[in-house]
């Protein structure tokens, strides 16, 4: 029982232990950390719920064929462009959409799509004016364009390496 719990929830247990340690070392900072974690978590909680709702909807209502056609190898260049667009538009921390990406991957989307969404996350279309306010337009636009241009080869490279393993 304890073994199973350790294996499945090792990260949660490690986090709790780390907090224990932090409270011993510096209670003030530790409680700050806990507060900031709780604040962030509660502000993204609706997004998390939405992501899991989408996982369920996708699984039941969208056929495997459609995903393969749109986001699989059959999708060709189109699948990569959709991925780059989604990555630049989606809001919230990248890690909360991991489950959604895994769901579409299991149902036929290519690994390149998953990687491109996560790489192009480094560009936030909605944030570009804000970024430019801090860092200037040449820097911001240059960085955005290069990031999107690099996202696609990154995705294809990760995919090639993932698929090589499957063949072995």
């Amino acid at each position: 029982m304890i073994r199973v719990l350790l294996r499945s929830q090792w990260l949660l247990i490690a986090t709790i232990l780390l907090y224990g340690l932090a409270f011993l070392v510096n209670p003030e900072q530790a409680s700050q950390a806990l507060t900031s974690a709780a604040t962030t978590f509660s502000s993204v909680l609706p997004l998390i719920i939405a992501v899991f709702c989408l996982v369920g909807l996708l699984h039941v209502w969208i056929s495997r064929d459609r995903i393969v056609r749109l986001l699989g190898h059959e999708g060709g260049l189109k699948s990569l462009v959709i991925a780059a667009l989604c990555g630049t538009l989606l809001m919230g921390p990248a890690y909360i959409i991991f489950p959604l990406l895994m769901e579409i991957q299991k149902r036929g989307a290519r690994w390149a799509v998953v990687t491109i969404v996560l790489t192009s996350y480094a560009v936030k279309l909605q944030m570009i004016p804000i970024e430019a306010g801090f860092l200037g337009w040449p820097f911001t636009l240059g960085r955005a364009l290069i990031t999107i241009a690099l996202a696609i080869p990154t995705g294809l490279l990760v995919e090639a390496m993932m698929e090589r393993q499957q063949k072995l």
Partner: peptide
């Protein structure tokens, strides 16, 4: 699909809580 959403949420929620906890610790 609702049931599936709920099940996957339950499965991954502890991991997500851990990650948010770690992020808080790290930022502080």
């Amino acid at each position: 699909s609702l049931r599936l959403s709920w099940q996957s949420l339950l499965k991954l929620l502890p991991l997500l809580i851990a990650i948010f906890g770690l992020v808080g610790l790290f930022q502080e």
